[in-house]
Design a protein around this nucleic acid. Structure first.
Lengths: 140, 140
DNA sequence: CAACTGTTATATTTGATATATAACAGTTGT
DNA sequence: ACAACTGTTATATATCAAATATAACAGTTG
C-alpha cells in the first residue's frame, strides 16, 4: 500500500491520508483485518509528523473503518465496513450537490455525468466485492 | 434568489456563496445576463463583510460564471457558461473519487450510487435546459 | 528491562478565513 | 459639477485550522 501525498495541495495532509486509506479499502488493496503501519513508522516513512497520522487514524476509527488495539496496533476493521447511515447519506449529498451543479452549468448531460461516475466506480472497486456491513457497536 | 448560509459550517462562507450561485445558475433561477447584487448590498443583506462577497465574485469571474463591469455591476455571464475543460474534468474527478470510494466501502452498489446522482441531477437542473457553452475569451 | 504500541498534553509556527477602514477609479443620474 | 453608486486595491487585525516539535503516560511484547 503506497501512499502518495501532495504537500502543495490545498487538501490537508490528514485528509489526503484518510482518502487514500479509504480508497485502498474500497479497491481491495487493504483487506479487513489487515494491519496498518504504526503512527510513528508511517509518519517517518512519508516524512510527516506523528500527530498528523494520528489525526487521520482517529478519524478513520470514529467512522468505523479501522480498529485500534492499544498494543497490537491498527487494523482494517475485521468485522466489515460501516453501513450507509442517514448521516453518511446527508454528507454524501452535500458533497455531491456542488459537483453536480457545476457539471450542469458547463453543459454536461446527465448521461455524461453518470458515465463518469460509472467509470470511476469501476476504476476504484475491486474485482471481488468487499466484506459487507459491520455489526454496529464499536468500542473505540 | 435567496442565499442561505450556515455560519457554523466548516465550509468557508465564500465557498458556500460560490456553491449557491452556481446552483442557482444550474437550476435556472439565475439566467445568463441577469444582474447580481453589488458586493456591498449583498454583504449587508446577509450580514457579512464586503470582502467575503468580493472573494466569491472574483472566483466566479475567473471561472467564467459571471462577468463584472466596472460600473454596471455583476451579471451572470450573458455569453453562456464555461465549457468542460480538461482542468475542470480533472478537478471533478479529484472531488468525486473520495465520495465514490466511501460509498463502495459502505456497500453501496453502483446502481444505488448512480441513482442518487441521477436524482440530485434532476433535482438541481431546470425544466428548460441552460444556455450552452460560452465562446472562450474572458477579459475579466 | 528495553522496545515497541497508541494516547494525551503543551507549545509554536504558519496560512487561510473573515472582518474593519480607507482610499482609488469609473459611471450614472440629478 | 456633484452626489451616489459601482468594482478594486491596500493595509491591518483577530481567529482558527493545520502541522510540527517535545515530552510524558500507559500498556504489551520479547
Amino acid at each position: 500500500m503506497i501512499i502518495q501525498l501532495d504537500l502543495q495541495s490545498e487538501v490537508p495532509i490528514y485528509t489526503q491520508l484518510v482518502h487514500q486509506i479509504i480508497e485502498g479499502i474500497a479497491g481491495g488493496k487493504l483487506q479487513p483485518g489487515e494491519p496498518l503501519p504504526s503512527v510513528r513508522s508511517l509518519a517517518s516513512d512519508i516524512g510527516i509528523n506523528l500527530h498528523t497520522v494520528n489525526k487521520a487514524y482517529t478519524l478513520l476509527k470514529h467512522e468505523g473503518y479501522i480498529q485500534v488495539h492499544r498494543q497490537k496496533g491498527v487494523v482494517v476493521n475485521p468485522d466489515g465496513m460501516p453501513p450507509v447511515t442517514q448521516e453518511f447519506a446527508d454528507r454524501q449529498h452535500s458533497e455531491l450537490r456542488p459537483v453536480i451543479a457545476e457539471a450542469i452549468c458547463r453543459g454536461m448531460s446527465k448521461d455524461e455525468l453518470l458515465d463518469i461516475v460509472d467509470r470511476l466506480y469501476t476504476d476504484i472497486a475491486p474485482i471481488t466485492p468487499i466484506a459487507p456491513i459491520a455489526p454496529q457497536g464499536g468500542e473505540n
